[in-house]
Structure formats: C-alpha cells, structure tokens
Amino acid sequence: MRHTTLALLLLTGGALLVASPAIQIPWPWQAPAPIPTPQPSAVAAVYLIHESADGNPAMTAIKADLAWKAALDSNSIRWLIADDDAAEKSLPNVVALARKHGLPAVVWVDAAGLGAAKACPQTPAEMLALLREIGAAK
C-alpha cells in the first residue's frame, strides 16, 4: 500500500516517531532560537579632542569637571582629553574622526574598534547627557 510506504507514526511517551525515514522530532515542539540581530558594542573609550589654541572658560569647565569622568570610570571606560596635534601620532583615527566632525569633538570607540563623533557640548552637564545618550554613562 502507498500509505504504508509513506510513514508509520507511533506516539509513544511524548515522542513522535516517524518510522520511515527514521527521524526523531522532539515533542513538544520547540521554536527555533531567534537569529541574533547585531547590537552596537559597548563603548570602550571616550576622547575629548580639541585645539588647545581655542581654549576658553567653557571648555576649561568641561575639562575640569569630575562628574562625567566619574561616570566613565564607574563603567571602566577609558577617557582622555587631548589636543589634536598632540594626539595625532598615538590616536590617528580618533583625531581624523574629530577633525572631520569639527573641533572640539567627543569621539567614542566601541569594543569592536568602531568610532563615532559628535560636537563637544557647551557645559559639563551637557557632556554627561551626551555620554548617557551614547550608552557610556548611566
């Protein structure tokens, strides 16, 4: 009979057995694991790149502010304030990003090494808000 050549199904002990071909399907049925969607990597480092000749009281306040540095420290995120010329040799890609965006700029690098930049805020509070926005501070 054609039907006997298709399959012989036996339901025993919660397992669905397919006799021919001999494939075991788990029961109850489990949905396959979802395909992971790429998530942005955590921020690994934050750089404030500036031109020291353009220094002003607002920038000095941001440079000396402790709150945003403490927020990064608590997340074990490295931070550095540097003049673009002084950092050019050690951080060429970071400096290039900052210059492309316009100085002064905040550049952050994720765990995968990908960088992004935004204009440097005007106040320490805005600096902290920016770090929260990019997920570097709580």
């Binding site: 000749a53 220094g55 002003n56 009281p57 000095t60 306040a61 000396a64 502010d65 402790l66």
Partner: peptide
Amino acid sequence: TNETCPPIPRAQWQSTPDMRPY
C-alpha cells in the same frame, strides 16, 4: 604666536573649577 588664545576682557573673567580633586 598663533597658538595663543584670545585675551578675555576683565569684565568677563570668571572663577575656574576647583582643582583640588586632581
């Protein structure tokens, strides 16, 4: 030199942050 910052008029002078924590 070209590397110096522009002078700040005395009327606009303001206190700078406390550096003791550093």
